[in-house]
Nucleic acid binder design. Sequence first.
DNA 1: GCCTAACATGAATGATGGTTCACTATAGGT
DNA 2: ACCTATAGTGAACCATCATTCATGTTAGGC
Lengths: 187, 187
Amino acid sequence: MTTAPHRLRADAARNREKILRTARTLFAARGGSVGMDEIAKEAGLAVGTLYRHFPTKADLIGAITSELSDRIFTALDEAVARIDAGGSALEELTTLTERISTAAGEDRTVKAAMSNLGIEAAPELKDRAMAGLARIVEAGHAEGTLHPDVTAADLVLTMSTLPGDELPEPARRRWVTLILRGLTHRS
Amino acid sequence: MTTAPHRLRADAARNREKILRTARTLFAARGGSVGMDEIAKEAGLAVGTLYRHFPTKADLIGAITSELSDRIFTALDEAVARIDAGGSALEELTTLTERISTAAGEDRTVKAAMSNLGIEAAPELKDRAMAGLARIVEAGHAEGTLHPDVTAADLVLTMSTLPGDELPEPARRRWVTLILRGLTHRS
DNA sequence: GCCTAACATGAATGATGGTTCACTATAGGT
DNA sequence: ACCTATAGTGAACCATCATTCATGTTAGGC
């Protein structure tokens, strides 16, 4: 993709990892409002070093958000795979929603990424999400467990409005229950 | 309540209103991130004047949020009154949710106030909300239109997670439909 | 062991935004 | 008309941040 001709020097590679690890933790706990200075200090480095690796704060956030997207899409793909292998769509949807809800409660980056999906996410990401969710919706309709008029867009809506750490865990759990009730077919 | 011995001078009263009017509009459109300088300029006043009336930005936001709470509680009380007068709980809940959803989409202060209800709102406010919503829940159970295990806390959850202007109007409408489906009794 | 391209450092810069205050203006009672 | 308590003004102050850059350090090829 990028030209990337140079192998990183050993110390540089080490520092890069330290930065990513630290930023992951701080962003998870307190969101994108943590300062670059604090990230650097916490990583035991100077700000300048941080900027050598990530020319902009947006770049740093982007790198971390990107890692995250991978993990989330993996979970989605696995759910779809299990459904294709004969698994229950309702069960997979439930588990997936619960997992993302928990993650959104524990990591503000997850919450932010999810909120973004609903609105200004790169079309590329949104399309990939829609594609996976569409498979789940299809299977749910075939199963008769999903309300007939529910669409993939509804699931995007569901995922993107999942509450974050502003709500305590029990409330988040309850929330998932209520939402899924609205999506599933009346028995 | 407060000692409030002094009548405001005419020009001061006029300016106070100008400030509130302007702040209402700006906060509605862009949230609490609008600067004090901008509010003052837009109101045709100097910042110092703004600070004479509201010693702190938090005070200004508080004043506006407070006005808002009144309007929202009025809507809630009216809904309860109509139910007491024999109206349908389901219908009132639907209308109330739709109204608040629309308001949250058009006014960021509403959205913020609602989000706050879920978490760090003054117990006084939360209690008042719970009381009104409890009446609706009761009536809904009696009617058989609300899912038996739904509680007032669930309605607080519903109201406090209503999406704001990050979602377009149709998505907000759809969202209300889905949520209400999760709350109402399976027919 | 030397040398230098890579890398790290952290004080300084510039932008933003809340808040203050010494000074000026005026409403409204006399 | 006059006086003064009230009110208004806006430049300046300060804290917070992202970002830069002149200077010092070091990994790793020779």
